[in-house]
Nucleic acid binder design. Structure first.
Length: 815
RNA sequence: GCGGGCGUGGCGAAAUUGGCAGACGCGCUAGACUUAGGAUCUAGUGAGGUGACUCGUGGGGGUUCAAGUCCCUUCGCCCGCACCA
């Protein structure tokens, strides 16, 4: 391939220039016209592929574009550096996680540089460094102080391979998200963050996020999962006790024919103490608890259950109904007790069919009467109440309210709200994470480490081989400590924190990354946040974004910060697909950026990555097509070379508006609009390509220099190296970052002639050239004088003219 | 099952939001320049037809002067969530 432009000289030259001149350094004291542009910080894995690149390149485009518009742009970068892969590598290859992580950071930093992606590296943070995790621990203590961090025994997902606990969210298809081992259940004492206290606010405040993608907000709302219903108390026959269940379908209460408890329900042992079939029940409970949670949530699960021998009383009609234990009810949702209405809930229907339990129709289909014996499936639609005493004849929506009122009056139930969202389990029995800053004292119990004692340093030497407990347990220097309270003998918490804690506040640290006294300065973060533009993958739509919102709200409530949503605008970019699949090492379809950058230069790879398709959508990578972007840049380069050779580099303002001048201004308008409206770099670049094509083919070269200057300015955010070089060649002051984004003149951009399509009865028949703003009668006359129009309407009667000014004409004729 | 999205040339895709379908790029064809061309420049490129024209945005139906865009229906694909009581 002919090297039409020397990118191998240009790229390093400008990358060095940007670095030496600290082009992206920002003074955070200067908040005039601030713009905080944040990209999700990466986990330092072995190497980046072109799919990762999309995120950083889009971010870099935004940063450069905003800078040219005169904003004081803060574009920091860091590393989400704690995590399991480094620990797994340590177990496998006996390399310390700190070393492999630092190596990976170095590699990735180099790769980012090779893309020409620029950050204010003086603000770099890494979550695995003591000066960072000190403050992650501080965050933990704040939550503890506020009663939002607590410990409880919980049935958790257990990965025997990683010898560690996984949050339910981290289990994929019943397997460990990271190592794909089959997940089991295990009981452990765990630290939790009480995110459920914020469920309502996390949900309602989604409305504040006007510039978040709808799909992300919908996903978060579904995850929080608010449901409104009624809590009903069922007395247990022969005891003074009662069982409480939650239902969203209180209208079906008269059809409850049995009740089901989760195997984990705390009242189960007491209830079955004297059961005849106690052994059978215990065996069943054991069996259920051995199934992993994930498979219990599948609809393919075969419903199984066992009768407890007990009965409960339906409080609305005094009906005695049997109490069962079944595998399809989970303790995690609602109260762990479900009133079963087989006629109007499909799960209950299947279960009742299997165990021959009673079915009563209480909601009738308005079209034809239902018969419980003949039903093939549950009737879950709207209908009219039957067999429901005084509520008979009401439609079920109305009945829901009336029954709830009546039950509240009689004290047998009350309206209630349930969330799907569960508390955030943050304990990890791992080494490579921030130690939880808590101490267990023989006398004082659980005691937090004093803030001034932070950080609780992660010891360097430990045995990594998993034992089922944190590797920290083996390090006695770490474990043995003194109580912050009584100075007596005490032991440290040996679990570390979930890495999502690290990443739920990093955007605050960037404002003052070196501050030793504080995690952040309130005054400064209040000025710089919320983040003006957050850019990242849609895979973080729920967990990371929800946790960050939660921590922000907690810090706001404690008056550490003065805002309660961290990210004002969110942009989630699509994945890059190769051969039909998401790029991944295991699929072997990863495209490395390095050889492409070597062959075509950084700008070509950037332009192609952006040109590939709309940024929020997935796009298919095609190696072959990269060449097109290279050709385009080389084409621009040759234009500049020609101008320099002909000594025509300075812009001579022309009086008249040539078609090239008009195109130039139209292009400024188009490119600006495309970037502003959803970072549509694909159409922005195609606009510049059109201008370049026009420059090549234009006959009159009056405004060529202006057009080329504009091209270089507009292209700069996408292809900064070659543009900076060309800008210098054109005799301008170095450094396009200091240039103003070009402005267009609406009068110049305006077309002087419009090609107006003429339709006859809705079909395109001809076109006429008209001046913009032409009046109706002149337009009609012009159209009627057109030869083709004459042919089409000859001898026919015109019924109607439809004229959309400056757009089109449609003539309706009678045949 | 529920929720969200998508379906446009040989390919990646445009379409200023109901107003000329296929911009721009890849690929392909031809010509020019060249010792040469896998460089570059110019032109062409949805299908059918010599042509006037006809047909074309997964399929079917509808609303409208006008539909890729709105409505109904159907098929296919992708993503998210899932026995949420």
């Amino acid at each position: 391939m002919d090297k039409a432009y020397p990118f191998n000289e240009i790229d390093p030259k400008w990358q060095k220039y940007w670095k030496d001149n600290k082009c992206f350094a920002v003074d955070t004291k200067d908040t005039a016209k601030k713009f905080y542009c944040l990209m999700m910080f990466p986990y330092p894995s072995a190497a980046l592929h072109v799919g990762h690149g999309r995120n950083y390149i889009i971010g870099d485009v935004v940063a450069r574009y905003k800078k040219m518009q005169g904003y004081n742009v803060l574009a920091p970068m860091g590393w989400d550096a704690f995590g399991l892969p480094a620990e797994n590598a340590a177990i496998k290859n006996n390399i310390h996680p700190r070393i492999s992580t630092m190596n990976n950071i170095a590699t990735m930093k180099k790769q980012l540089g090779a893309w020409g992606v620029c950050y204010d590296w003086s603000r770099e943070v890494a979550s695995c460094m003591p000066d960072y995790y000190k403050w992650t621990q501080w965050i933990f203590l704040q939550l503890y102080k506020k009663g939002l961090a607590y410990k409880k025994k919980a049935s958790v997902n257990w990965c025997s391979s990683c010898a560690t606990v996984l949050a339910n969210e981290q289990v994929v298809d019943g397997k460990c998200e990271r190592c794909s081992t089959e997940v089991e259940q295990k009981d452990l004492e765990q630290w939790f963050f009480k995110i459920t206290d914020y469920a309502e606010r996390l949900l309602t405040d989604l409305n504040k996020l006007k510039n978040w993608p709808e799909r992300v907000k919908t996903m978060q709302a579904n995850w929080i999962g608010k449901s409104v219903g009624v809590e009903i108390h069922f007395p247990i026959e022969g005891t003074e006790k009662q069982l409480t269940c939650f239902t969203t379908r209180v209208d079906t209460i008269f059809g409850a024919t049995y009740m089901v408890l989760a195997a984990e329900h705390p009242d189960v042992p007491e209830l079955i103490k004297d059961a005849k079939n106690k052994n059978e029940i215990l065996d069943f409970i054991d069996e259920v608890r051995h199934e992993n949670k994930e498979s219990r949530l599948k609809d393919t699960l075969e419903k199984k259950g066992v009768f407890t021998g007990r009965y409960v009383i339906n409080p609305v009609n005094g009906k005695k109904i049997p109490l069962w234990i079944a595998n399809y009810v989970l303790m995690n949702y609602g109260t762990g007790a479900v009133m079963a209405v087989p006629t109007h809930d499909q799960r209950d229907f299947e279960f009742a069919a299997k165990y021959k339990l009673e079915k009563i129709v209480v909601i009738d289909d308005p079209k034809f009467s239902l018969d419980a014996q003949l039903m093939k499936e549950a009737y879950e639609k709207q209908g009219i109440l039957v067999n429901s005493q005084q509520f008979n004849g009401m439609n079920n929506k109305e009945a829901m309210e009336k029954i709830a009122d009546w039950m509240e009056e009689k004290g047998i139930g009350k309206r209630s709200i349930q969330f799907k969202l569960r508390d955030w389990l943050i304990s990890r029995q791992r080494y490579w994470g921030a130690p939880i800053p808590m101490v267990y004292c023989e006398k004082c119990g659980i005691v937090p480490v004093k803030e001034e004692e932070l950080p609780v340093l992660l010891p360097e030497t430990v045995e990594f081989k998993p034992t089922g407990e944190s590797p920290l347990k083996g390090n006695s220097d770490f474990v043995n400590t003194t109580c912050p309270n009584c100075k007596g003998k005490a032991k440290r918490e040996i679990d570390t924190m979930d890495t999502f804690v690290d990443s739920s506040w990093y955007f605050l640290r960037y404002i003052s990354p070196k501050n030793k006294e504080l995690p952040f300065v309130k005054e400064d973060v209040d000025k710089w946040l919320p983040v003006d533009q957050y850019i990242g993958g849609v895979e973080h739509a729920i967990l990371h974004l929800l946790y960050s919102r939660f921590i922000t709200k907690v810090l706001c409530d404690m008056e550490h910060i003065g805002f309660d949503e961290p990210f004002k605008n969110l942009f989630t970019q699509g994945m890059i697909i190769k051969d039909g699949f998401k790029m991944s090492k295991s699929k072997g379809n990863v495209v490395a950026p390095d050889p492409l950058i070597e062959k075509y230069g950084a700008d070509t790879v950037r332009v192609y990555t952006l040109f590939i398709g709309p940024p929020e959508k997935d796009a298919e990578w095609e190696d072959r097509a990269v060449e097109g972007s290279y050709r385009f840049l080389a084409r621009v380069w040759r234009l500049v070379e020609a101008l320099v050779e002909q000594n025509k580099t300075s812009v001579v303002p022309s009086k008249e508006i040539t078609s090239l001048k008009r195109k130039t201004h139209q292009t400024i308008k188009k490119v600006t609009y495309c970037i502003e409206d959803g970072f549509r770099c694909n159409t922005a670049i195609s606009g510049i390509m059109e201008l370049v094509n026009d420059i090549y083919t234009c006959k009159d070269d009056t405004d060529i220099t202006e057009a080329v200057h504009t091209t270089v300015l507009l292209l700069y955010p996408f292809a900064p190296h070659v543009c900076d070089e060309m800008w210098s060649m054109l005799g301008n002051e170095r450094d396009l970052l200091k240039q103003k984004w070009p402005k267009y003149d609406e009068d110049i951009a305006k077309e002087t002639e419009i090609t107006m399509p003429v339709q006859i009865k809705g079909k395109l028949r001809t076109k006429v050239q008209v001046a913009p703003g032409i009046d109706e009668s002149s337009l009609k006359e012009l159209v009627l004088n057109d030869e083709k129009t004459k042919n089409w309407i000859e001898g026919k009667q015109i019924i109607k003219w439809i004229i959309v000014p400056d757009k089109m004409v449609n003539i309706i004729i009678k045949d």
